[in-house]
């Protein structure tokens, strides 16, 4: 394809714009490239979580009864609270993007910081939830591994006690009460139940911790962009970093919107 000698019309002031990287011709081209890059990255992320969702789907189908029972051990109230918090953070993120587009530098920074605040709140709730999960032996640990199925008996006992006193005393079962001197009494069915419940909780921890990891990365990125926003780095001409971090944050939210029903609501009909 032979090209002519003619030069592209020089785009005047754009070439000297401080935010225009040398290899782009126009700010618009740069903005489009950045946005497409972010969408492509999110596509990758969908597939990245997709592997876990595929594994979840297979075992949900294979061990549906136990998945529902295991799901019933998670705290719907905390899960729902977190869902609301995260949706609020999406709102504040959308406001940050809007402010960057209209050139309100200070409010861009503020909304970004508020987004981080909601994100931290989410992880705070998650921390107490995980701690509780750990106490009732749902979390992968030494009780969990290999052929030791004791953890599931313990978790069931904890659930029973919680149901009994309507969650007021927060007392944990005495391990001795559930410690089977006689593993065989679990029977093959008990062992299978324990294995299947373990798969559920494995996926629960993998998926929620991968999600949390994405939030942590988000905090760092949002923090950096908030800093630049306060410095006045963004203008109606150039706001793609804010827009892109917004896309990322909404993606993290959407993942949670899927995780919440799949993990928490699955066993809701079994009552608490």
């Amino acid at each position: 394809m032979s090209a002519t000698n003619q030069t592209v019309q020089d785009h005047g002031q754009h070439h000297h714009h401080k935010d225009l990287a040398h290899h782009f011709d126009t700010l618009e081209q740069q903005h489009d490239a950045n946005t497409l890059g972010m969408w492509a990255f999110l596509l990758t992320e969908v597939l990245f979580f997709g592997g876990l969702f595929a594994a979840y789907t297979i075992y949900r189908y294979k061990y549906s009864a136990m998945f529902e029972e295991a799901s019933n051990h998670l705290d719907i109230t905390l899960g729902a609270t977190n869902t609301v918090i995260l949706i609020l953070s999406s709102l504040t993120m959308a406001l940050a993007v809007r402010c960057s587009q209209t050139g309100q530098a200070v409010w861009t920074g503020r909304w970004l910081l508020i987004t981080i605040f909601f994100g931290l709140m989410f992880l705070g709730v998650k921390y107490f939830e995980w701690k509780h999960d750990y106490n009732i032996r749902l979390m992968p640990g030494k009780d969990w591994a290999g052929k030791d199925f004791f953890w599931w008996q313990y978790a069931k006992k904890a659930k029973e006690m919680e149901k009994h006193d309507k969650g007021h005393s927060h007392a944990l079962p005495d391990p001795k009460d559930v410690l089977p001197d006689n593993h065989p009494s679990l029977g093959i069915k008990g062992i299978q139940e324990s294995q299947q419940a373990r798969l559920f909780f494995l996926l629960y921890f993998c998926m929620t911790s991968l999600h949390a990891l994405h939030m942590l990365v988000g905090f760092v990125l949002i923090g950096i962009i908030a800093y630049f926003a306060y410095q006045g780095a963004y203008s109606p001409d150039y706001y793609s970093p804010v827009e892109n971090i917004g896309l990322y944050w909404h993606f993290v939210d959407i993942v949670w919107i899927f995780l919440f029903p799949l993990l928490y609501l699955l066993g809701a009909h079994m009552g608490h």
Binding site: T44, L47, W144, L202, L203
Partner: peptide, 23 residues
């Protein structure tokens, strides 16, 4: 589209090996 799937698969393999769980 493909590479993230192997990444998460190897991640699960690592989890299975280190925690002794049976995915």
């Amino acid at each position: 589209l493909g590479t993230p799937v192997i990444a998460v698969t190897l991640g699960l393999l690592g989890v299975e090996r280190t925690l002794g769980v049976g995915i």
